[in-house]
């Protein structure tokens, strides 16, 4: 190992998979070896079995679909508000000065603390679940997009002006394309946070979803089901992350060459 020396693609995959193996092995030793009572932690085998019965007998696939729908829906609403507003704030400083102080305050409001209020306002239906995700991600997203757009290289803006671009053309043809790869990266990051908020929303006042299933399993002390539910979230997160990265590489070949 040399500092900062790159690792070959094959070795990177092997090493990454290696830690999963070590993690599962340690879990196996702790449970099969009797170090942790089964009441607190199910073994890997028990967890898989619990997962199988969840999927085949208890319609867990439906829960997964509902949760994905909520995450994607809430995330898309947040992005539809945050990306345009963030771009305008980054490009035009008076707009930034208008919104920034409030957003800096709002981003610290914990989304989970809104749940009781949201239940009061929107009931326990889908609107409430989506609202939790939107509140949890929209403020962060606006601030991050504004930061990215505001960091557009001023010399590129000047070059565009000498080539005849006016204000809106600079926004459309310089600020947006310059910021796009970083914005996509920001969206990838915030989508991960949206997953945290959806589960919190589903732990309270929900009748479906992965979070609701985990809550039900707790009543039955079924740690296998709970761990399987949590692991499913991790797997979905990993897959969307890889998809996002692949799409970004496709969309922005100039940024990753």
């Amino acid at each position: 190992m040399e500092p900062l020396k790159p690792v070959s693609p094959g070795a990177r995959i092997a090493l990454g998979a290696g830690f999963f193996a070590v993690f599962i092995a340690a879990w196996g030793v702790a449970t099969y070896g009797g170090w942790v009572p089964p009441l607190f932690l199910a073994s890997p085998g028990k967890t898989l079995l619990a997962g199988w019965s969840l999927l085949t007998e208890f319609g867990f696939l439906g829960d997964i679909a509902v949760t994905i729908w909520r995450v994607v829906g809430g995330f898309l609403i947040a992005a539809a508000v945050a990306v345009p507003l963030g771009l305008l704030m980054g490009a035009f400083k008076p707009i930034e000065a208008f919104f920034e102080p409030f957003l800096s305050f709002a981003r610290y409001l914990p989304a989970s603390a809104f749940i009781p209020l949201l239940i009061l306002w929107a009931g326990v239906g889908e609107a409430q679940k989506l609202s939790v995700i939107v509140i949890g991600s929209v403020f962060q997203l606006v601030i991050m997009v504004a930061g990215v757009a505001g960091a557009t290289r001023p010399d590129l803006v000047e070059a565009a002006r000498t080539l005849g671009s006016g204000r809106l053309a600079i926004l459309r043809r310089v600020v947006i394309p310059a910021a796009a790869p970083q914005i996509a990266e920001t969206l990838r990051l915030v989508l991960g946070w949206a997953w945290t908020y959806v589960i919190v929303a589903e732990l309270i006042g929900a009748t479906s979803g992965i979070g609701h299933m985990i809550m039900d399993s707790q009543r039955l002390l079924d740690t296998g089901q709970m761990i399987f539910g949590i692991a499913v979230i991790g797997i979905i997160g990993l897959v969307t992350d890889l998809l996002f990265k692949a799409v970004n590489r496709r969309l922005f070949p100039w940024a990753v060459l």
Binding site: D155, L156, E158, A159, A160, P177, A178, A180, F252, W254
Partner: peptide
């Protein structure tokens, strides 16, 4: 300009 100001996305 003296600095490189090509648009990297074009």
């Amino acid at each position: 300009f003296q600095s490189y100001t090509l648009f990297p996305w074009l």
